[in-house]
Simulated assay, not measured.
Amino acid sequence: MSTPQLDLWDAYLEAENHGLRSERTDALERFLDSFAELTQTGKHDWALTLASSIVDDGASTPIRMPLFRSVLLPALESAIAHRTPGAARWLAGFAQHIYKCSDLRPRLVDGTLAEHALLETALDHDPDDDHSRRKLLDLLVSRLNYTLHELPSGVLYGHDGASVDQCREMLEELDDFTRHADRLGLVGDYANLVAKCRFHYNTYSQYLTDRRGASCYADYLSQVSDA
Rank of each mutant, 00 (worst) to 15 (best):
H200E: 11
D124H: 10
L20E: 15
R133I: 01
L208A: 09
S163Q: 09
G42C: 02
L32N: 12
R24C: 02
Y12Q: 08
Y207G: 04
R143K: 14
H116C: 03
D182Q: 12
R198A: 12
D226F: 12
E37Q: 14
H180D: 09
S222D: 11
T178W: 01
V55H: 11
P74Q: 07
P85A: 02
T61W: 10
L151K: 12
L28C: 10
L32H: 07
R89E: 11
T84P: 00
R24M: 01
T3Y: 07
L140K: 14
H180G: 00
D176Y: 08
A59N: 13
G58N: 04
Y146D: 10
T121H: 03
A88F: 04
R211C: 02
L140T: 06
S52A: 15
L48C: 11
A36H: 12
S78D: 14
H18D: 06
E14D: 14
L123F: 07
Y190W: 12
L171P: 02
V155C: 01
L67V: 04
L13I: 06
C167W: 09
S215M: 07
L13W: 04
S78T: 15
R212D: 11
S132L: 04
Q206D: 14
T121V: 08
S142K: 13
E172K: 12
L8K: 15
E77W: 02
L221I: 12
R64E: 08
V109T: 07
D160W: 09
A117E: 15
H180Y: 12
S163K: 07
S102W: 06
C167Q: 06
E77Q: 15
T121Y: 04
D175I: 00
E172R: 11
E115L: 04
L118G: 08
Y201T: 01
R83A: 15
A51G: 06
P66I: 00
H18V: 03
V55R: 08
S22I: 04
L123T: 07
H44C: 05
A81Q: 13
R183F: 03
A181I: 10
T112L: 02
E77M: 14
Y99V: 09
Y99S: 08
Y146R: 13
H97D: 10
Q223F: 03
G58K: 04
T49Y: 02
D129K: 00
A87D: 00
H125Y: 04
H125C: 05
A11V: 02
A36E: 13
H125L: 01
A88I: 03
D175L: 01
L148P: 05
H116Q: 12
V71C: 10
D129S: 09
S205P: 00
L20K: 15
V141N: 09
E169A: 14
E172C: 04
D182L: 08
A227M: 09
H97V: 01
N192S: 13
P62A: 03
Q96G: 04
A92K: 06
T41W: 07
L186G: 00
K196D: 12
V155M: 10
D57Q: 13
V109D: 10
N17T: 05
E16V: 09
H97N: 13
S102V: 02
D226S: 15
L76V: 05
T147M: 11
G158I: 01
S222C: 08
